[in-house]
């Protein structure tokens, strides 16, 4: 195998192009040994701006090679995209969080990847560039083909950065998961939400759960139902039922039964909405003072 730590985007793209599909892009490389090793690898983690965290005009830009640990401890992400910080903190272990990247979490395309679930709830976009020099921007949830397969072809396309509209006045986000163990564990269900509260009512809710489909899944019907509703006990009860009814999940010998998972989807959806709405109201209160 040959291994290139690319120092410029041009170098990386040229290498991929010249390799004719035999080279693959890698960032944290934590899942490298789980699959067949490719002929060669292009490591993106040293690219300029690969780990950037910046905000301009209400838009947060994150380098695709930002590690989970860096994202989880960023004041900006903690305050303006809280769900992502929480999702990043939930993954694996400190060692994994120190090396695994946001881009990898998306392109690896695991159905219940914690950071990806948070990104989809936050409405993140992915900025991609391919070996032909074409650039595109896609919603993160549109980057999934089937279970564990991304629409990003790692032999010819690079996920450069992720952008998120930062949470402002009256907005809040949250992430939660349910796992059999408190560390080193995949979730049975995870959920994330981004909400805006206006005059005490939900507006523009994004509610995401996984694993349901290949991509982190928005609960569009539940979201629609919530429009205009107030965050209160009655609402959480309705959300619990609506979310459970909206999804069809699978049984897994290693995780849990479909029935239980379905139940958890409802509980977690309600909890994550509640957490997000409490943050939104804090924001509303702070900014309105």
């Amino acid at each position: 195998m040959s291994y290139l730590v690319a120092t410029s985007l041009e170098e990386a793209l040229t290498y991929l192009r010249d390799s004719g599909g035999r080279a693959r892009v890698v960032a944290g490389a934590t899942d490298l040994y789980l699959k067949d090793l490719p002929h060669s690898l292009v490591d993106l983690s040293a690219l300029p701006g690969a780990s950037v965290i910046e905000e301009a005009d209400g838009l947060i830009t994150l380098g695709a090679c930002l590690t989970h640990a860096s994202a989880a401890s960023s004041i900006l992400i903690l305050s303006r995209a809280t769900a992502l910080a929480e999702g990043c903190m939930a993954i694996g272990s400190p060692q994994i969080r120190n090396i695994a990247t946001l881009g990898g979490n998306v392109v690896n395309a695991a159905p219940a990847a914690d950071a990806a679930v948070a990104l989809v709830a936050l409405g993140a976009s992915a900025v991609l560039v391919d070996t032909g020099g074409r650039s595109r921007e896609e919603a993160v949830e549109d980057l999934y083909v089937i279970f564990n397969r991304s629409a990003v072809d790692s032999t010819s396309e690079i996920l450069l950065k992720l952008t998120i509209k930062s949470c402002g006045t009256g907005e809040g986000s949250a992430f939660t998961r349910f796992a059999p163990r408190r560390a080193l564990s995949l979730p049975l269900v995870n959920a994330a939400a981004r909400v805006r509260i206006e005059n005490g009512c939900f507006r523009e809710v994004r509610l995401v759960v996984a694993p349901v489909k290949p991509a982190p899944t928005r609960l569009l019907q539940t979201e629609a139902m919530l429009e205009g509703m107030a965050p209160c006990e009655e609402t959480w009860r309705l959300v619990e039922r609506a979310a459970s009814e909206e999804v069809e999940v699978r049984s897994s010998l290693l995780r849990c039964s479909a029935r239980y998972r379905n139940h958890l989807v409802g509980v977690l959806a309600a909890r994550v909405l509640q957490a997000a709405s409490e943050r939104a109201r804090e924001e509303e209160g702070v900014d309105g003072r």
Partner: peptide, 22 residues
């Protein structure tokens, strides 16, 4: 297998040698 890479704890079993250059 935890070691420090650039001062941070990592699982050395997951890091390809190519990554440690520099």
């Amino acid at each position: 297998c935890t070691v420090l890479l650039e001062g941070q704890a990592v699982n050395s079993c997951l890091i390809p040698a190519g990554k440690i250059n520099g």
